[in-house]
């Protein structure tokens, strides 16, 4: 049986009050939910909360799920909405509390701690190159977090969740061409980071 059909069966069981079915769905999607949120919000404890809330919403609204789209599509929509609300809330809070120099310091700290933490895997290769590589990864991660919302969401759905363009279009409600151009621009931005890093 296809994964989609299994989900549909589980949903029907949950609608009839089957707790075990909910447990199976939770087990099946917990990692994807958590890591997806983590890519979008980057703070592990917040990603955990958001992913958990996603499951609570599934449970709460299961009767509203008609099955016209797949459970996967519906679930990603729920998670996207939660992450968007989270960012809206964080944006409002940050307008009153954001301290720029503090944030700058955090990035430096992160890089500093990288300098100290990497060498243990570098026994058989060039330590400086490994550090550079880790620094580059960090830069890319920062660039990813700094992408415009839609680019970041689409990149996460494509690159990390490995969904097809048409599935992403279904989740986001965008045309396939629009999804592709957001993806293109996201990759372009990441490439620029790589280039800037090399030219330092």
């Amino acid at each position: 049986m296809e994964s989609k059909d299994i989900d549909q069966q589980l949903i029907e069981k949950i609608k009839n009050g089957d707790q075990a079915a909910f447990g199976l769905l939770l087990e099946k999607y917990q990692k994807r939910a958590y890591y997806f949120c983590l890519h979008l919000v980057s703070r592990p404890e917040d990603a955990e909360d958001l992913a958990q809330e996603g499951f609570v919403r599934v449970y709460k609204n299961v009767h509203a799920f008609r099955g016209t789209a797949s459970f996967q599509t519906w679930f990603y929509q729920i998670l996207l909405n939660l992450c968007r609300s989270y960012h809206r809330h964080r944006y409002l809070v940050s307008r009153f509390t954001f301290n720029f120099s503090q944030a700058e310091g955090q990035n430096e700290d992160q890089e500093q701690s990288l300098e100290n933490s990497i060498p243990d895997q570098s026994l058989d290769s060039d330590p400086q190159r490994l550090i550079d590589n880790e620094k580059l990864k960090l830069r890319l991660e920062q660039a990813l977090q700094a992408l415009p919302r839609q680019q970041k969401e689409i990149f996460a759905l494509k690159h990390f969740e490995e969904l097809k363009i048409n599935e992403i279009a279904g989740i986001t409600g965008l045309a396939e061409g629009t999804v592709k151009s957001h993806l293109f621009r996201a990759v372009q931005r990441l490439q620029e980071v790589l280039k800037e890093f090399k030219e330092r």
């Binding site: 890519h39 690159h159 990759v187 990441l190 980071v193």
Partner: peptide, 19 residues
């Protein structure tokens, strides 16, 4: 080659170690 290199660096595992 540049696209491939960039996207390989943005690897899944970098986000966090397995829980």
């Amino acid at each position: 080659g540049q696209i491939k290199k960039t996207l390989t660096l943005v690897a899944k595992e970098q986000v966090e170690k397995e829980k």
